[in-house]
Design a protein around this nucleic acid. Sequence first.
RNA 1: GGCGGUAUCGUCUAGGGGACUAGGACGGAGCCCUCUCAAGGCUCAAACACGGGUUCGAAUCCCGUUACCGCUACCA
Length: 483
Amino acid sequence: MADSATPRVRFAPSPTGYLHVGGARTALFNWLYARKLGGKFLLRIEDTDKARSTDESTRAIFEGLTWLGLGWDEDPVYQGANLERHRRDADRMLANGTAYRCFCTQAELEERRKEAEARKESFKYDRRCYDLPRAEVERRVAAGEPHVLRFLVPEGTTEWNDLVHDRIAFPNKDIEDFVILRSDRTPIYNMAVVSDDIAMRITLVMRGDDHISNTPKQILLYRALGAELPEFGHLPMIHGLDGKKLSKRHGATAVGDYQHQGILPGAMLNFLALLGWSPGNDIEVMTLDEMIGLFSTDGLQKKAAIFDPKKLEWMNGQHLSRTPARELAPRVTPLLVAAGLATEAELAARREWYDALLELLKVRARTTDDIVRQAAPYLRDAIEYDADAVAKQWKDPVETRSILGATRERLATTEWEPAAMEEALRKLAEERGIGGGKIFQPLRVALTGLTVSPGIFDVLVMLGRDRSLGRIEAAEAWLASRA
RNA sequence: GGCGGUAUCGUCUAGGGGACUAGGACGGAGCCCUCUCAAGGCUCAAACACGGGUUCGAAUCCCGUUACCGCUACCA
């Protein structure tokens, strides 16, 4: 275990796509760990696979983390920039006898692998180049013969006390003498990771459990380099609804996809946190700060979790409801503008009204997109009558028009205030011998064109006197033309 | 195939030998509230993979089986 006073953890994605929800969760747990313990959360871009890495992906990772609010503490480390150190470390191992040169070509290896397979045996490099006479090795090196550096796996057992799995052990005989430096002198993954983690003074390596079998190799490398071991913690995977590893087939897997679906970053984080971690009680909905307070590696799960979009939506609805309009506005305004429902200036000009509208809509929305959909009747001049709404609430044009007319007259002479309006309309219903709903429902359609909306008196207030009365009148005219 | 990991309601999970007639949440069904929709409240259906041990006692500990997942490259 590393003795550094300050815990240092890192998130080390390879920039070959977008920020995956699984990666986001790994980042979150590392981030929470650092925040909880007053440590540092570092970012390392593993861009050594030149063929697959792109700047665009790197940018997507930055953007994803930034959107989520998972800031990193030091400048991001680009693995590709540390090539020289990786080589030096590999050469050090060659020098101290923990690594050796191997001249076997990939084609030869491939052939032997196939042969072993044909014999139904598992292939493991047979260490033949380790036995090459020193003179021959020197001769071939001098001749410029291409070769790789392989790690000389020692005898014994490699084990560690995993933060989430407790003890994990691998017999070293099952680990082959793996390559650490390619024939073009670029490092192989495990070499680069260990070299970088040592250089970054990482105290805990917390990553997906698909790395469990890399861990014994890495531990061996730490030892060969005479470095102090960090702690290791392996997080379970995230699967799709069918129990298979989450992939494109399951729909949205990129954090950005959810951002565009109207998910709040806080809700995304909260949902992800609960996928593989539990605060140990029945608490579900949490802010990031609350998560920091509650976080403990004890609550980390061993089992893979299935990503359930339904629960994400519910979680988002919870966060939406709990977010004050003032905080919601910056996230919703751009969407409203993009939908052509308003301009930023218009909304800024009546900020209190806008806040009140958001307060009304957020409770019945599960995504910010829902809010945008619901907001249309309050922002647009004209409304459209939903066919189903008309069919259901305006069945009888003549009667409906009569009710609407009476409603309009009452409202016109009533103070524009919820309690007063409700009293007036309930009285009207009583006079006509009908239930309140018989007035409210057709009115709702006249006002919004829809069968669903916030409470009708809230709608009247949001719309304002002139617009409300105007809409009722328009509805009456529309009905007259149908009668 | 080899090695490693995992196993509680459909899903996320609580549980760390007796408090378990196994708790909460999502989703589902129903009821209440009610001007609609949400939200909220209440109720119901729904799980300890299987088999052996250990123990007075096992969801909890051990072993095996099964299933699933991961790794098995001069990818990361």
